[in-house]
């Protein structure tokens, strides 16, 4: 099952602290949405509001067009995959995965069949009779996913599920999550602070900061044509063009990504000297200093094999320049 999600004018206060401010978002059915932002930006709060663990101070949550703002978690068509997995330690994997179906009054046979099917989906069918403590972190992760998907939710919420895994396993799990999401078609809402993870899996990224949505859209849009300076900075490295004067709030500045600076492009940056370069495997990260009065520096990522000598002077150009307002 799958459903679209609408958040309408959501405000959330904790005492005097405003955790969320006027959140308006729409996710299409079957989309893989990633809520991205630094810690304390309100992304987990928003996820908890979606799951029903928190009632918004004001505003509405619509799932499949129905108002769910005040509906308890157990009556929502959502399930959550928690940060610490929260598996039931006294139950076998099969009983863990079948728990939601047991709550829905399904027969033992039916829920065991479904649990086996879900365990097979995550590649753990051979461990169906094991207890959670016999598994590795990555395996527990998969069981938590299977348990949340077994009840066929319309929306699956994932609260930083990959945070505890090492880098290699995290990349592998990202691919698996994406593949499973495509297979089941459920709307996924995934919270993370890792922008690479967001780009790897999302159909739509929502960048949040200080309880507000900074930008929302497909990864390419958010990365290449960010709406705010914060979103641009959070998604990756950024160079400011003509950075002579310090920028004030309200100024508009031109920005360009390091990989969009090179020996050819739309905007001439002038002659620059290569100060140093580091090899990053897929590119050289180079620091250039422009030979003019203000000595602007740029960081550029040059393709392998196109590295000038340190100390050489090159004509630099930029492409895909975006103009953004300074807000803080």
């Amino acid at each position: 099952m799958t459903a679209d999600v609408s958040l309408q004018s959501i405000d959330q206060y904790f005492g005097d602290f405003q955790a969320l401010e006027n959140i308006n978002l729409h996710f299409d059915a079957g989309e893989f949405v990633v809520l991205l932002g630094p810690s304390g930006c309100g992304k987990s709060t928003l996820l908890f509001i979606l799951g029903g663990f928190l009632a918004p101070t004001s505003g509405q949550v619509l799932i499949g067009g129905e108002d769910m703002s005040r509906v308890a978690p157990k009556d929502r068509p959502t399930t959550t995959m928690f940060q610490d997995y929260a598996l039931f330690p006294h139950m076998s994997l099969r009983d863990n995965v079948g728990f939601g179906l047991r709550m829905r009054g399904q027969s033992r046979k039916a829920r065991h069949d479904r649990a086996d099917e879900m365990l097979d989906l995550v590649g753990l069918l051979d461990k169906a009779n094991h207890k959670p403590h016999e598994l590795s972190g990555g395996q527990r992760q998969r069981v938590a996913l299977a348990r949340a998907l077994a009840v066929d939710p319309e929306v699956l919420l994932l609260d930083e599920p990959l945070g505890a895994l090492d880098l290699k396993l995290r990349r592998q799990m990202q691919e698996e999550l994406k593949a499973i999401q495509r297979k089941v078609g459920t709307t996924f809402v995934h919270v993370t602070h890792d922008q690479e993870e967001a780009m790897a899996i999302a159909d739509r990224i929502v960048v949040m900061n200080h309880g507000k949505v900074e930008d929302a859209g497909p990864p390419e849009d958010v990365y290449l044509r960010p709406k705010t300076l914060f979103a641009a900075n959070f998604m990756g490295d950024l160079n400011r063009l003509s950075a002579a004067q310090p920028a004030r709030v309200g100024d508009y500045i031109e920005c360009v990504r390091p990989e969009n600076i090179g020996p050819a492009g739309e905007v001439a940056l002038g002659d620059a000297i290569l100060e140093n370069a580091a090899f990053f495997g897929t590119y050289h990260r180079c620091h250039f200093q422009v030979l003019d009065e203000v000595k602007t520096s740029y960081v550029a990522h040059l393709p392998i094999g196109e590295l000038p000598q340190v100390g050489d002077t090159v004509s630099l150009f930029a492409s895909n320049v975006v103009t953004l307002e300074v807000t803080e």
Binding site: A72, K74, T79, A86, L87, F88, A148
Partner: peptide
Amino acid sequence: RAARDLGA
């Protein structure tokens, strides 16, 4: 909390 989320 997970149990409640799953409908308990």
